[in-house]
Design a binder for these strands. Structure first.
Lengths: 106, 106
DNA sequence: TCAATAGTTAAGCGAACACTTAAGTATTAG
DNA sequence: CTAATACTTAAGTGTTCGCTTAACTATTGA
């Protein structure tokens, strides 16, 4: 998949507060879907849909054993977003440097 | 504004590829709205709407001089997103450390 | 075996989204 | 003064989103 499309999915996934709460929980250790649903005031079906979005975005990996689906972190997903942001900061800082050099010329 | 609400706006803003392209351009230096629109195959009106979303998210600052609106980077916006991501990675790594210590016990 | 548990899937609904067209305002160059 | 430029704003349109209810499947503990 193209990088841009992956970034669409990752940033879109993180744009929802319920999904960020789910990621926060999963980043502390593996959890089942029911455990994810417990503190949330939405139906299990809605939680399943959020988990699907997170899995398709590459932020979360999922595995079913018996009737329980366990969700784990997939750190590469977050990494992609982090690197895009770092790239922007980098360009911005390099520009400030060039500007500083220009102003330092006498 | 609450941190969570800001994160909603920032991640949602970055979830759209056109808006990311706009941020990439702005991170290389200040630009007018027309300059932003030039390489994009959407109407000026649509670009204005994207810029509004970016401004409300805190990623971009904007200033009008005469009839030209100039857009600049607001690095604090990206920073907020970066810190949230770093926080998740941190929790995930700390958990791996604890796990490693457990396994190292004999 | 059979009832509770854990998740799945589909259909539907109202709100938000990205975009367009169209009609406007304000600024500036000639 | 006038025409072109650079937006701005409003209304409308099709699509996607987050969520619900409801009906279903698969697993497991008593």
């Amino acid at each position: 998949m193209a990088q841009a499309q992956k970034l669409n999915l990752v940033f879109h996934a993180l744009g929802d507060p319920t999904r960020r709460a789910i990621v926060e929980r999963i980043s502390r250790g593996p959890v089942s879907v029911s455990q994810l649903a417990a503190p949330l005031s939405i139906t299990l079906a809605a939680v399943v849909q959020h988990v699907q979005v997170l899995e398709e975005s590459g932020l979360v990996r999922t595995e079913k054993a018996g009737r329980v689906r366990t969700c784990r972190m997939e750190p590469a997903g977050l990494s992609l977003a982090e690197q895009w942001i770092a790239g922007r900061r980098n360009e911005w800082e390099r520009r400030l440097d060039r500007l500083g050099e220009l102003l330092a010329e006498d």
